[in-house]
């Protein structure tokens, strides 16, 4: 049985705002009957202020789908449409005191229903871009489609790289066989693509397309610092999405000392997170640098 929080159970057993909504002027229908989840979100929006006066839902789905729908209606009531659109799927999960990794897609469906309803109100077309594959990494809820896309886009060839890019496989490691199968599948596609000249299959360079070409000209000290800062800044949103963060403490020659904050702190993936960022820095700077936790700064000085 799923390990549902009390709040999930409460919202499932006593769903708020279930049923049709009289006077609804924004409706979002999302989900997939194939996957067993489908949701209709109905909003009553005040045209003058664009404030959501009332919200209700109808859901075909499991306990967490119904609870996520119920939570969503409670969260958006009273908000303006723009405020409501800032509600992320993580917010929905947090509101319910968390969802099992296999069930995170229920909160994603809630967020999509909201986007679809707002688009419906504004007379815009809403296109859902996400495809979802079978869940491969259960520790971090990473599915096969995401892994495949990342492997393909970045020419990844090892499980370790996949962990650095997607976190998949970085936890209990029991999905490594599944990740290897995806790597083999993508590699086979590359190798069998018929080309006139190449007979032999060359492994694609790692992370070739992700990074801009490494600068060849030597950077000044100031440019180098700026580059390090820009690179780390570009990674921060990714960490923040998972409630983590990073800050640079010191740059000392080849050693860059950083603090991991929030959820990243003490996370079992700390090493692979640092590893992934280090790879990016090496690419950006065109030289080898080492990314170290700030805790090692003291040791280095003393």
């Amino acid at each position: 049985m799923w390990d549902y929080s009390d709040k999930v159970r409460e919202h499932f057993f006593n769903p708020r705002n279930a049923g049709l909504l009289d006077g609804a002027n924004a409706v979002g229908d999302v989900g997939s009957i194939k996957c067993g989840d489908a949701l209709r979100l109905m909003l009553k929006v005040d045209p003058a202020s664009e404030r959501i006066l009332d919200a209700s839902f109808q859901t075909f789905g499991c306990g967490s789908a119904i609870a996520s729908s119920s939570a969503l209606t409670e969260m958006v009531k009273g908000k303006t449409l723009d405020e409501a659109l800032t509600v992320s799927n993580q917010d929905i999960a947090d509101f319910l005191d968390g969802l099992p990794p296999e069930k995170m897609h229920c909160s994603v469906m809630g967020r999509e229903a909201l986007q679809a309803a707002v688009a419906n109100y504004r007379g815009e077309a809403w296109q859902d871009a996400h495809a979802e594959g079978a869940l491969v990494c259960k520790c971090f809820a990473v599915d096969s489609v995401l892994i495949e896309d990342v492997v393909r886009a970045n020419g990844l060839t090892t499980v370790e790289q996949v962990s650095n890019y997607t976190k998949a496989g970085g936890g209990c490691a029991s999905c490594h066989e599944g990740i290897e199968e995806i790597l083999a599948k993508v590699a086979a596609e590359r190798c069998t693509a018929p080309t006139a000249e190449t007979k032999r299959c060359e492994p694609a360079p790692v992370a070739a397309s992700a990074a801009s070409p490494a600068p060849t000209a030597r950077l000044t000290n100031f440019q180098r610092m700026r580059k390090i800062e820009e690179t780390v800044e570009s990674i921060r949103p990714m960490l923040q999405r998972d409630h983590g963060d990073i800050e640079i403490v010191e740059v000392d020659g080849k050693n860059i000392y950083v603090n991991l904050k929030g959820a990243c702190q003490g996370c079992m993936l700390e090493a692979s997170t640092l590893n992934g960022i280090q790879t990016r820095l090496v690419e950006e700077l065109g030289e080898f640098v080492r990314l170290l936790p700030a805790s090692m700064l003291g040791r280095a000085l003393s």
């Binding site: 194939k34 067993g36 075909f60 499991c62």
Partner: peptide, 29 residues
């Protein structure tokens, strides 16, 4: 309607059964 939701409500009444829904297995189908 969806099976996991049925099972959760049955379970609340102390009745144990099982379902062929995707959600009870954690798979997608």
């Amino acid at each position: 309607i969806e099976g996991e939701a049925i099972l959760l409500l049955l379970n609340k009444l102390g009745i144990a059964a099982s379902s062929g829904s995707a959600c009870t297995s954690g798979s997608l189908e």
